[in-house]
Design a protein around this nucleic acid. Structure first.
Length: 649
RNA sequence: GCCACCUUGGCUCAGGGGUAGAGCAGCUCACUCGUAAUGAGCAGGUCCCCGGUUCGAAUCCGGGAGGUGGCUCCA
């Protein structure tokens, strides 16, 4: 076939012809020397390959540079190899596991050497030398036996295991640069000198193959970019994220505290946090009641027998606080209140006409989360769930699901949450036996959820295999300030609990039928939600949520009485106001109010006392000038009623 | 739970084998003040805990606890 010509269509629509065996680098050179200099990889028929690969058919070709995100990812991958090479030089004997590309950078997992933070600059130094040396990167195809033997001799146990687990059909390749060889699928840069800027960020532990029963490796995280400005920007964003960290803001603003004397993961809500929480609780309970939910209270404890019926005990008892034995009962702190709500449903007869029945509760749960997972209010051992269980007929699943999605949209809008996405989780079609056995229920329920989302016109990602064992679900994923994805809201269809509790309603036919249960959380837990809001607002809560909505600051002692009259006037209208009458300069009081992110500071001095006015200063906007007390009160009241979000000036 | 790192006054942090330092906050006094820090003074610490090494440990070593970054988990 040598000598055959192939057609290459380029991004701009033009077409060129090249001899079989021509490399993509040569093609790049043919297009322009400038492009060849910048080229880092080739995208052939949509697949990213090495520039050294050769043409073997008619293709569509795009030469990737560091202007392309995919090109940058190739550089990041090569950078991971360079880091491994540097480690092998600085710490001989270190073994290599895997080193993939991640968002903004890469990591590499190592074994047989324990790294400390002081090692990072040494490794970076060596990496710079490797980049400067500009080693050509060479790809080599190996036979299975050859590859196994090669890595056995080097006692690279992880690489050997990877090879053994790869399917027979996989072509095994190594990439080498200088003295360093790594098993890798590629693609890579043509040489190490093409790497631009990188920075080693942190050291972490990670289980080999993500399996907690296996060896713990040392992972080094790093970032890499095409330009120094991008690295600087990335570091700036990280710095900014630290300022939004809810743990820091929570302390500064008196929202919550944690102490080992109280116990790990058991937060105390301080007055400011409690006010915010109470406002949210009133809001969500009122909203849910208006939508036909019935709020209940149920105990924090239950007999372990209840959780045996629900199945929680069998599945989760390791994460539950152990039973307390008293009299003839064994009690556990509840990790979930679903069983309690099942019992409420069961306590009376239900006609099909009564459904859907929506039982809701702001219930406290206790779960023994692993100590390493605890984090401020984001992950705690006692949490308050905004929980509800909807008991409905199978034909009502779609309409009830739609109602909940609309509720979620409504709540997110009120809180100004915009960075989120929907994830629709189905059962894994290849492993149906892992789930509750009821094919028809699964198929129709999954179709109903999808149809509901399509009817609502909302975008979502589908996640086959992510469903709970008892039914499909929709999760709403949000991003925290530090970039982690977490689930805020969830709607879960449950075919299991109604069976466990033998729930029934009387149908039109006069016979008993099994209802479906929909679990749903909108604001998730109060703890996590407030943590999220702290980060979202950088601690500057909109007036309707702020612990103190207006602080009246006196210019001097003689205006104290008027200041207190102003505050009382506002409080009488249901607004949260307080007076700062300390003997400090007005500048000091204003600064403190701003630092504490109080929405309104009302300055009162001689002018205001005589005119019955207040000088209004809005957080993040500055001095708004004088208002009569009534004008200001009406304005603030309106803002609170409208749940107006704070707009930065 | 696992790996690494961190832990010094209420908070943020400096220091570091010879029994401790700053700023802020607190308290007292003076100032009575107009839109992001008035000044002076005072008080405040088992340097996380328990062992060990040493003439001597906050400092070095070991163990524990809590926190942080990850991993795993997340009904």
């Amino acid at each position: 076939m040598a000598g055959q010509e192939f057609a290459v269509s380029l991004k701009d629509g033009s077409e060129r012809r090249y001899q079989s065996g021509t490399s993509y680098l040569e093609i790049a050179q043919d297009i322009s020397q400038g492009l060849a200099r910048e080229a880092v990889a080739a995208k052939v028929n949509g697949k990213v390959v090495d520039l050294s690969s050769v043409i073997e058919g008619n293709v569509s070709l795009e030469i990737l540079t560091l202007k392309d995100e995919e090109g940058v990812d190739v550089m990041r991958h090569t950078c991971a190899h360079v880091m491994a090479q540097a480690v092998s030089r600085v710490f001989p004997g270190t073994k290599f596991a895997i080193g993939p590309v991640i968002e903004n950078g890469f990591y590499y997992d190592f074994a047989d050497h324990v790294f400390t933070p002081e090692d990072l600059p040494k490794i970076e130094e060596e990496m710079k030398k490797i980049v400067k040396a500009d080693y050509p990167i060479v790809r080599k195809v190996l036979s299975r036996d050859g590859a196994t033997q090669f890595f056995r001799e080097r006692e690279d146990r992880f690489k050997v295991e990877i090879i053994e687990d790869l399917p027979e059909s996989e072509t095994l390749t190594t990439y080498s640069q200088g003295e360093f060889v790594d098993l890798c699928r590629g693609p890579h840069l043509p040489s190490t000198g093409r790497i631009k800027v990188f920075k080693l960020m942190s050291i972490a532990g990670a289980y080999w193959r993500g399996d907690s029963s296996r060896e713990m490796l040392t992972r080094i995280y790093a970032v890499a970019f095409a330009k120094k400005a991008e690295l600087d920007e990335h570091l700036r964003i990280l710095e900014e994220a630290k300022e939004r960290d809810h743990r820091r803001l929570g302390k500064e603003l008196g929202i919550f505290m944690l102490s080992k004397e109280v116990g790990q993961g058991l937060p105390l809500w301080l007055p400011n946090g409690a006010r915010i929480r109470r406002t949210i609780e009133r809001y969500i309970v009122d909203l849910e009641e208006s939508l036909g939910y019935q709020h209940v209270y149920t105990p924090h404890m239950a007999s372990v027998e209840l959780y045996k019926i629900s199945g929680h005990w069998q599945h989760y008892h390791e994460d539950m606080y152990p039973p307390m034995q008293m009299d003839n009962e064994e009690l556990v702190l509840r990790p979930m209140n679903c069983p309690h709500h099942m019992m409420i449903f069961k306590s009376s007869m239900h006609s099909y006409r009564d459904l859907p029945l929506r039982v809701a509760e702001l219930g406290m749960m206790h779960r023994h989360e692993m100590s390493g997972a605890l984090a401020g209010l984001q992950r705690v051992r006692m949490m308050t769930l905004n929980d509800a269980h909807i008991f409905c007929r199978p034909d009502q699943i779609q309409s009830e699901f739609t109602r909940v999605v609309k509720l979620i949209e409504h709540v997110y809008k009120d809180f100004g949450l915009k960075e989120f996405y929907y994830r629709l989780s189905y059962r894994d079609p290849a492993n149906k036996e892992k789930y509750v056995q009821n094919d028809e229920m699964w198929e129709t329920a999954q179709a109903m959820l999808k149809q509901a989302m399509d009817d609502l016109g909302l975008p979502y990602v589908e996640a086959p295999g992510e469903a709970a064992f008892y039914g499909p679900k929709l999760d709403v994923q949000v991003k925290t300030a530090l970039g982690r994805d977490e689930t805020l809201s969830t709607i879960q269809i449950d075919f299991h609990l109604p069976n466990q509790f033998e729930l029934e309603y009387i149908g039109e036919d006069g016979k008993g039928h099994r209802p479906v249960v929909i679990h749903r959380g909108v604001v998730g837990t109060m703890e996590r939600f407030v943590a999220l809001l702290l980060e979202q607002y950088k601690g500057a809560f909109p007036a309707w949520l702020a612990p103190v909505q207006a602080r009246v600051a006196t210019v001097a002692k003689e205006y104290e009485e008027y200041a207190h009259r102003v505050a009382q006037f506002l409080r009488d209208m249901g607004l949260r106001a307080e007076v700062d009458d300390r003997s400090e300069k007005i500048g000091y009081k204003i600064r403190e109010a701003q630092v504490q992110k109080v929405p309104y500071t009302l300055v009162v001095g001689e002018k205001e006392t005589h005119g019955g006015t207040v000088s209004v200063r809005r957080y993040a906007q500055g001095d708004l000038g004088a208002f009569t007390l009534e004008e200001f009160a009406a304005r603030l009241k309106q803002e609170v009623d409208d749940k107006e979000l704070l707009v930065e000036a």
